[in-house]
């Protein structure tokens, strides 16, 4: 949410994910052998071990697998972080689960199973809003 929070280590295996995110595109590695999508990007498919995954844009459609409303800042979350905020485990239609924030609605409206759509807004990382 702010520039100085983190600097992802961009490697050959992960750079396409971050480069796409900076232009508001959500891409994931997809195994050329077993066709599974996976998050986070790795050198090898975690399902079958095949190397050299393909990169594909995903739908950005997802639902809340779990979530928590966080009313305070705990270390190492920066002092200027806005609270309350919602951290969620987001299950993509393509299969992978990732951590993200749910934005664009009141925190108390978030619930498990809630349909979501990826958005980027100010952030260089994928976050999700109600679909």
């Amino acid at each position: 949410m702010t520039d100085n929070v983190f600097a992802p280590p961009e490697t050959e295996a992960t750079a396409p994910f971050w480069e796409a995110a900076r232009t508001g595109r959500f891409v994931l590695p997809r195994c050329r052998s077993c066709s599974e999508f996976f998050h986070y990007p790795r050198l090898f498919c975690p399902f079958c071990g095949a190397s050299d995954p393909d990169w594909q844009e995903v739908s950005g459609k997802a639902q809340v697998y779990s979530y928590t409303i966080v009313p305070l800042r705990m270390r190492p979350v920066p002092d200027e972080w806005p609270v309350p905020y919602v951290v969620a485990l987001v299950e993509l239609d393509e299969g992978p689960v990732l951590m993200s924030n749910v934005v664009g609605c009141a925190p108390e409206d978030v619930h498990i199973g809630m349909p979501l759509q990826v958005t980027f807004g100010d952030a260089d990382v994928p976050v999700f809003r109600p679909a």
């Binding site: 949410m1 929070v5 992802p8 270390r75 979350v77 990732l98 993200s100 260089d124």
Partner: peptide, 13 residues
Amino acid sequence: EYESPYGGIPAPI
């Protein structure tokens, strides 16, 4: 890098 941008590092979360 997959948790910190979301304020998601602390264990209680």
